[in-house]
C-alpha cells in the first residue's frame, strides 16, 4: 500500500506526495468514500502543520488534529486553534474537552473559568 509507504517518509513534503498517490488509488474505488475523505483531510492537516511550523518554529507534523489543537492552546494560540477546529469541522464536544485539558495543562485557570 502506497499509503503505508507514505507514513514511512520522514519528510513532510515527501509524505504529502505519497499520500496523494495513495489518494488516487482510493478514488478509483467507489467503496472507499470514507477513506478518500480521510486521506484528503490528512493532506490538508499536513499542509496546515507545515504552515504552523513556519509560523511558530515548533514541530507539529505527525500530530493528529486533536493534538494539533491541543498544542496550539498550550502555546497560547487559542485563535489559531479555533481556526484549525473550523477547518476540520471538529465536533464541539471534542473541542471543549481538548480546550479544557489544554488549559489545565498550562494552568490557565482564568481561561478555564471563562469556558
Amino acid at each position: 500500500l502506497t499509503l503505508m509507504e507514505s507514513f514511512r517518509q520522514k519528510d513532510s513534503t515527501e509524505r504529502i506526495n505519497k499520500i496523494k498517490a495513495a489518494l488516487r488509488i482510493y478514488q478509483d474505488d467507489k467503496e472507499h468514500t470514507f477513506e478518500v475523505k480521510a486521506i484528503e483531510d490528512s493532506v490538508k492537516l499536513l499542509q496546515t502543520q507545515v504552515q504552523l511550523e513556519k509560523d511558530y518554529s515548533q514541530p507539529f507534523s505527525g500530530l493528529s488534529i486533536s493534538s494539533t489543537v491541543y498544542k496550539l492552546i498550550t502555546i497560547n494560540q487559542s485563535n489559531r486553534a479555533t481556526k484549525v477546529r473550523g477547518d476540520f469541522k471538529m465536533p464541539d464536544k471534542r473541542f471543549w474537552w481538548i480546550k479544557l485539558r489544554a488549559l489545565v495543562e498550562i494552568r490557565d485557570w482564568d481561561g478555564v473559568a471563562t469556558l
Binding site: 499509503l3 507514513f7 477513506e35 486521506i39 490528512s42 493528529s64 486533536s66 493534538s67 471538529m90 471534542r94
Partner: peptide, 18 residues
C-alpha cells in the same frame, strides 16, 4: 461506525486508517 472512525482518525492520527 463513521462517527467513531472519524473521531479516531482525527484524534490519534490518520495512519490509523490502516
Amino acid at each position: 461506525f463513521e462517527f467513531f472512525k472519524r473521531e479516531i482518525l482525527e484524534t490519534y492520527g490518520f495512519e490509523h486508517i490502516q
